[in-house]
């Protein structure tokens, strides 16, 4: 008889179950109709099985989004967990699509599934990548724009993980401000 180590057949469980969503911009449909759930996973191995199977973000058409959210939270402002929340926003230049986009998004996913923000990971709702001709965006969404301690911890760790230079400023904005903004920029609650 052969003894097989459990390491070889037991998958590594994640702290949370996650859902990957895809948004494709079809102007003949409503915003919600363009949003589709791709799949859910709750182990490291199933995360990679999904990630290895889908298109890299840099190959998506303009107007598309991927969203990774905790199971039970929908990737929209209206969800109860997002209503009083906000996001750390990373805006990328057109040149960065080739150099940084896929690397930044994978790093963002690894931060989420690996619970990189320790106990402040409970404040994380999910992350979104927007593919846009005028400039791509990546954001981590958190649940409470008033939880300064969690937000600043998440922002510091995230910036370090992405390798964003200290002199580059990233901003945290509430969804309420983003939804009601009049111009093209939203004021930062934290930097």
């Amino acid at each position: 008889q052969k003894v097989v180590s459990p390491e070889s057949y037991i998958k590594h469980p994640l702290q949370n179950k996650w859902a990957l969503w895809f948004f494709k911009n079809d102007k003949s449909k409503t915003w919600q109709a363009n949003l589709r759930l791709i799949s859910k996973f709750d182990t490291v191995e199933d995360f990679w099985a999904l990630y290895n199977h889908i298109q890299l973000s840099s190959n998506l058409m303009s107007g598309c989004d991927y969203s990774l959210f905790k199971d039970g939270i929908e990737p929209m402002w209206e969800d109860e967990q997002n209503r009083r929340g906000g996001r750390w926003l990373i805006t990328l230049s057109k040149q960065q699509r080739k150099a940084d986009l896929d690397r930044f998004w994978l790093e963002t996913l690894l931060c989420l599934v690996g619970e990189a923000f320790d106990d402040h990971s409970d404040d994380v709702c999910g992350a979104v990548i927007n593919i846009r001709a005028k400039g791509d965006k990546i954001a981590i969404w958190t649940t409470d724009y008033e939880n300064k301690e969690a937000i600043t911890h998440i922002g510091r760790v995230y910036k370090e993980r992405l390798g964003v230079p200290p002199k580059v400023i990233i901003g945290y904005q509430s969804h309420a401000d983003t939804a009601t903004k009049s111009g093209s920029t939203t004021k930062n609650k934290f930097v």
Binding site: L14, V44, W48, L110, D118, S121, R161
Partner: peptide, 18 residues
């Protein structure tokens, strides 16, 4: 309870394992 945390090195190593 305890939180299940994985660092990036471990997660990346899992990508290539069978």
């Amino acid at each position: 309870g305890t939180r299940i945390i994985y660092d990036r090195k471990f997660l990346l190593e899992c990508r290539s394992s069978p």
